[in-house]
């Protein structure tokens, strides 16, 4: 499988502090990649560079081999839920339709077909029955689903998600995993930031451990080892498996 997104010697500085150092990475077509690391490890920064929102201080990011000089229509970014004003008076359907903002004429209202596309996207995340509800009436999991539906409106080649599993219920987590699998079959590259090691081990084809720099990169079984995790997160590691063995 070819690389869709690449980072070459990528470094990002905020003021005088470096958020990412010398990152080299390849994200392949039809692959689910989990970015893992402690708070402040640079996961969100890396996603913002890959979505073209932040320009690196050094090095470069490429999309389909071309330098990424800003947001690209082939890449869709799903922000953290905490970045949004959920009290804004907008319905689930209207919020989803905003996913078409760049692709529709500003002179015309959204067509019936656009609305049907939005309802289909909401149906795929189990939210079509709440299409006319206000976004502030939704639970955390439901909000995450609406974000995903909005992202699905544009058939992009790469979907980047910042902490999609954080603070959501189990049905939403299962739904996210199902949607990732469907997107993978379509050839979409999915990249998401997470703290959940077990979730990453089960869901991702590719895991990247970050802590300011890439600590490990590869298949989850090769990356999520005790040694790599201790180097990335620090402290000591307690394996639940060994505790169970002691209990038995």
């Amino acid at each position: 499988m070819a690389d869709l997104l690449n980072c070459f010697n990528l470094t990002v500085h905020y003021d005088n502090r470096s958020a990412l150092r010398d990152v080299n990475l390849g994200i392949r077509i039809g692959e689910v990649t989990a970015l893992l690391g402690p708070n402040g490890a640079g996961k969100s920064t890396l996603l913002k560079v890959l979505s073209g929102m932040i320009s690196p201080s050094h090095g470069r990011a490429t999309f389909e081999g071309e330098p990424l000089n800003g947001p690209h229509r082939g890449i869709t970014y799903v922000p953290q839920r905490s970045d949004v004003d959920w009290k804004f008076p907008i319905s689930v359907l209207e919020c989803t339709l905003l996913g078409l903002l760049q692709e529709r004429s500003r002179w015309r209202p959204y067509s019936k077909q656009d609305r049907e596309t939005a309802l289909a996207a909401l149906h795929s995340v189990g939210m079509d029955h709440l299409a006319h509800a206000q976004i502030d009436a939704l639970s955390g999991g439901q909000q995450q689903r609406v974000f995903l539906a909005r992202a699905l409106m544009s058939e992009s080649k790469a979907l980047l998600l910042d902490e999609p599993f954080t603070g959501v219920d189990v049905p939403t987590q299962e739904m996210l995993v199902r949607i990732f699998a469907t997107l993978k079959l379509r050839g979409t590259a999915v990249v998401y930031a997470t703290h959940d090691l077990a979730q990453a081990a089960q869901t991702a084809d590719h895991a990247v451990l970050l802590n300011g720099e890439v600590m490990a990169d590869g298949a989850p079984k090769d990356v999520l080892t005790a040694d790599n995790l201790m180097r990335t997160f620090g402290g000591s590691l307690i394996s639940i498996e060994s505790l169970q063995a002691v209990a038995l």
Binding site: P71, D83, L98, L101, R150
Partner: peptide
């Protein structure tokens, strides 16, 4: 549409360019 999106989800608006 732009002003609506920027009013409630600035990060997504920025990601759209």
């Amino acid at each position: 549409r732009e002003i609506t999106l920027i009013s409630f989800d600035r990060v997504f608006a920025r990601s759209l360019g």
